[in-house]
């Protein structure tokens, strides 16, 4: 259970911006700016942060939908960039993704059965009969009966579409699934059904998830560890649900404190201002203009992610080892 399944090291994605004029220097969006973390087999690693902080770009680099500008991704100990053609194809089976909007990943003109069978055809798995069997079994595992094979996306409710999206990720029997805001658009009563399903599948099949969400209640519920992103960087990684190992980074604290609590009305420390532009992020610690605990060093020096306890890493000068 504790073997490392996936590791990213210095992973970076800079999107070039169209040049404004001849004299202008080339600008980039620093969508993901040198992040490193490891995910163990069977783990659910939550990734949180405000919109635009780089969560989806990270997820898309893990499933090879987006090519990194720099850095390396290791799967089962092997660097992905050095893989042969055939190993790469196997990797594409092993790593799958579920999106927020199942509409966009389902072809409106094709039946659900067609959509689910296609990846099996691409990977030359089984004959027609065997593929139909795999598809109907997968549908069953996500709580839909075989009759859904003949239905079209528009005939399904939001929750049913998300079940199909999950089935599409499962049909190739992957080891690792990126789940990008997959329950964010669903109403509470449907959301809890899908969360239970994801958890059940993970336990039954020993799956590993990168669980991306901006909803901190969802992430705290489902994750073993949580990574917090701000402006393309990971500012903290901590174990979820361990009371005396709560988050330390001022951003993480402000973020969690901002979440309204259904059990009690709380006073929260409100962060001022907006997240700065990722084209020209502030120098030093990118969070320093909004940080309630800012020090001089924060304006000039970029803090590094440092281990502060077992399973706990923080990127903040406050917690740097004293000289």
């Amino acid at each position: 259970m504790n073997r490392e399944l996936l590791k990213v090291s210095g992973l970076t994605k800079h999107y070039p911006l169209p040049r404004q004029g001849l004299m202008e220097k080339k600008q980039v969006v620093r969508a993901v700016d040198g992040i490193s973390f490891r995910i163990r087999e069977g783990e659910i690693f939550g990734l949180v942060g405000e919109s635009g902080c780089g969560k989806s770009t990270t997820g898309q680099m893990l499933v090879q939908l987006v090519k990194q500008t720099e850095g390396e991704l290791y799967f089962q100990g092997e660097p992905v960039s050095g893989l042969s053609e055939s190993r790469m194809k196997a990797l594409r089976r092993d790593i799958q993704i579920v999106f927020q909007d199942p509409y966009s990943s389902l072809n409106p003109k094709k039946t659900i059965g067609w959509t689910l069978e296609e990846p099996l055809i691409i990977h030359r798995i089984g004959d027609k009969l065997q593929r139909r069997k795999i598809v109907s079994e997968t549908l069953e595992q996500v709580g839909l009966d075989a009759s859904y094979m003949d239905r079209y996306p528009h005939e399904l409710s939001g929750g049913q579409k998300q079940r199909v999206g999950i089935a599409a990720a499962l049909v190739l029997e992957p080891k690792f699934i990126v789940i990008d805001e997959a329950v964010s658009a669903l109403d509470v009563s449907v959301q809890s059904q899908i969360l239970n399903l994801l958890k059940e599948l993970q336990e039954k099949r020993g799956l590993t998830y990168l669980f991306i969400s901006h909803d901190l209640n969802v992430v705290e519920y489902i994750s073993d560890r949580i990574g917090v992103m701000y402006l393309g960087k990971i500012v903290e990684i901590f174990e979820a649900g361990v009371a005396d190992k709560g988050p330390l980074h001022p951003y993480t604290r402000a973020l969690f404190s901002a979440v309204p609590d259904v059990h009690k009305r709380k006073e929260h420390a409100v962060l001022q201002g907006d997240v700065p532009n990722p084209i020209e992020p502030p120098g030093g610690c990118a969070f320093h203009p909004r940080c309630p605990a800012v020090m001089d060093i924060c304006r000039s020096e970029v803090p590094q992610l440092r281990k502060v306890g077992s399973g706990h890493e923080v990127s903040c000068h406050i917690y740097a080892e004293g000289e």
Binding site: S192, N196, N217, E220, H263
Partner: peptide, 15 residues
């Protein structure tokens, strides 16, 4: 049905 830290490790109630 609401997820949250207080319900970790438990199956969520569903309607």
């Amino acid at each position: 049905s609401l997820p949250g830290a207080d319900k970790r490790g438990r199956i969520l109630y569903t309607i």
